[in-house]
């Protein structure tokens, strides 16, 4: 209908060109022209944040931006997270946080939440709970009740802050973390559990041992 324009975006570090009508939303360019479908659409009014990406480091709702407005800018989407140096070739601590702290259920809001979390931690590496809640208040989640999303971002903040502590320069493994946190699964010779001569039996269920911590 209208003339298409050629726009250039640096997406997750790679330069990409898109032919787009001036009215095309950035979110559609990302999803449909660049085939990066991790960025989602959940509303038509700019309320849900499922479409959140970073534009030149700032979190934006890509459904409220025309693709042409992003011409020449650097865009980061969830697909770029694993390539960041903090990810050490694996998952980024934010992604790991969402998995470890059960910060997602259906996963639809998750990429947007991760991008909002990233924008927050870039600015404020050690946020208070209230600051995290504020930072993700433009992202709706219908599944999780947010509590575990807050914990996921706190997990990432902790990991990123102690990153240099990993001796080999890689990320801190889950095992190291359990050790660090005095985590105790209750099984002998396992995760800080009592040490005995008998090695830990594969298959024993730690559930039934009396261990520290209460889920209440």
């Amino acid at each position: 209908m209208t003339d298409k324009r050629e726009i250039t975006l640096t997406v997750n570090g790679t330069e990409r060109t898109v032919e787009a009508e001036p009215r095309k939303l950035l979110v559609h360019a990302i999803r449909e022209d660049l085939d990066l479908t991790g960025t989602h659409i959940g509303c038509d009014t700019g309320n849900c944040g499922a479409c959140t990406v970073l534009k030149d480091g700032e979190p934006i709702k890509s459904c409220l931006t025309f693709a042409v407005q992003a011409d020449g800018s650097e865009i980061m989407t969830v697909e770029g997270m694993e390539d960041l140096p903090e990810a050490s070739g694996e998952l980024h601590p934010l992604q790991e946080g969402f998995r470890e702290e059960h910060g997602l259920q259906c996963g639809y809001c998750t990429p947007g939440m991760i991008m909002s979390g990233k924008a927050l931690l870039d600015e404020n590496p050690d946020p208070e709970e209230g600051e995290i809640r504020e930072a993700i208040s433009g992202n709706l989640c219908r599944c999780t009740g947010y509590q575990n999303i807050v914990k996921s971002i706190e997990y990432a903040a902790d990991e990123l802050n102690k990153e240099p502590a990993a001796a080999d320069g890689g990320t801190v493994t889950a095992e190291q973390r359990f050790a660090d946190d005095d985590f105790d699964c209750g099984v002998e010779n396992c995760c800080g559990g009592p040490s005995t001569e008998t090695p830990h039996v594969e298959g024993a269920d730690p559930q039934f041992d009396d261990v520290g911590g209460d889920d209440t």
Binding site: V78, R99, L104, F178, V187, E202, A204, Q207, V211, G213
Partner: peptide
Amino acid sequence: PQPEKHCGHGRGGMGEEVTRKEDKRFIT
């Protein structure tokens, strides 16, 4: 009291806090 988190040392049966198998595709 329950274990705070599944450490991967049980077989992941009933009552264990196994992290979700489906998560990786969603977080990436």
